[in-house]
């Protein structure tokens, strides 16, 4: 294993020191492992808190700032944060209007956020929770832990964050967050596995001629393995899975997301195919993101996320945002 780390045990803390040094717009509590907006808490504004395992950068710390999250809690690599961290974040962003927890649907994340919400509630902070579960690769929800939260997390954080910035109430911010999730779908493909620092070797084996279809964002293997083929055909498989679950139509927000080790030039090739697929189905990619946003360490591959827009959602997507990883309009 070759990685730019000082030691396996200090990966998260060392990265937090870098985030703190690079971004004066953030206040990083290194001891409790919370990334705050420097101006949190904002009186009268609903606070947005998200968090999850590390290794998905820029998610979530890179999305803390004006118009998006108020705080992010990074856990160990691929391990959800602990309740203490989440409580610290929740209390730290509560400006009296309550706090929205944005939780990706994984057993660990759900359990730790649940405990934190309960304990924060005991201390007088009103907490609402939205679960993100956009990954269509997990099919049989009755016999699994349910669909995973992946790329749509970014959409939820951006759009709910924009609404919170207008002074909307907690229930209203939670409603729009759930609406974004319901209108979003994702599918991921890996060309290579990733290497978790503590494990020291790749999480699974994949030959030069194979790809994994339906991967999540934790280096876990996908649902099936398939032969490597042209980008066009790989995209078709991914988009067919999305289309089969929620037919694509109308104005669509599209993200082609790199898993961490994918050259941007390949992501643009993928985006061209995704856009063509949408047109074929009568949908239009009116807003787009191409880049590394919800990653899986050094994995090569991509995920595609679509969100069927409404007038309100488009306005909120276009609203100003100023975070380390996403900024426009301000």
């Amino acid at each position: 294993m070759k990685k730019l780390i000082n030691s396996v045990d200090s990966v998260v803390t060392d990265a937090l020191r870098g985030i703190a040094a690079a971004h004066p717009s953030l206040r990083v509590d290194i001891e409790n492992k919370v990334v705050f907006r420097a101006d949190a808490p904002r009186p009268g504004k609903v606070g947005l808190v998200s968090g999850g395992g590390s290794g998905h950068e820029p998610l979530h710390g890179g999305f803390v700032g004006y118009g998006m999250l108020d705080a992010a809690c990074p856990g160990e690599v691929f391990t959800s944060p602990v309740p203490d961290q989440l409580i610290e974040a929740t209390k730290g962003v509560d400006g009296g209007a309550g706090v929205l927890h944005i939780v990706k649907n994984y057993t660990g994340d759900v359990l730790n956020f649940e405990m934190a919400a309960e304990l924060s509630g005991d201390e007088g902070v009103e907490v609402a929770t939205v679960l993100v579960n956009d990954d269509v690769a997990v099919q049989d929800s009755l016999f699994t832990a349910g669909r995973r939260g992946t790329g749509a997390t970014l959409f939820v954080e951006k759009i709910a964050g924009a609404l919170a910035e207008t002074g909307a109430h907690l229930a209203e911010v939670a409603r729009v967050a759930r609406e974004v999730n319901e209108r979003s779908r994702s599918f991921g493909v890996a060309l290579t596995p990733c290497t978790v620092p503590a494990a020291g070797k790749p999480t699974f084996e994949l030959s030069d001629t194979e790809i994994e279809l339906g991967i999540g964002i934790h280096g876990e293997p996908g649902r099936t393995r398939a032969p490597m083929r042209e980008a066009r055909e790989i995209v078709r498989t991914a988009m067919d899975a999305i289309e089969a679950d929620l037919p694509l139509s109308g104005e669509t927000l599209v993200m082609v997301n790199g898993m961490g080790g994918t050259p941007l030039i390949e992501l643009y090739i993928v985006f061209a195919e995704v856009e063509a697929y949408l047109r074929e189905k009568g949908a239009t990619a009116v807003r787009s993101l191409v880049g590394n946003y919800v990653t899986s360490l050094d994995m090569q591959g991509f995920s595609v996320t679509t969100c069927s827009l409404t007038g309100e959602l488009t306005r909120l997507w276009d609203a100003p945002v100023e975070t380390p990883a996403l900024r426009w309009g301000r």
Binding site: E76, V77, F78, A198, A199, K201, T203, H218, G219
Partner: peptide, 19 residues
């Protein structure tokens, strides 16, 4: 434990319990 977890999970079980 971590290798068992790498096969069907996310390769962190041993490290987490040790901590």
């Amino acid at each position: 434990l971590t290798q068992l977890d790498a096969a069907i999970g996310d390769a962190d079980h041993g490290a987490n319990l040790d901590r």
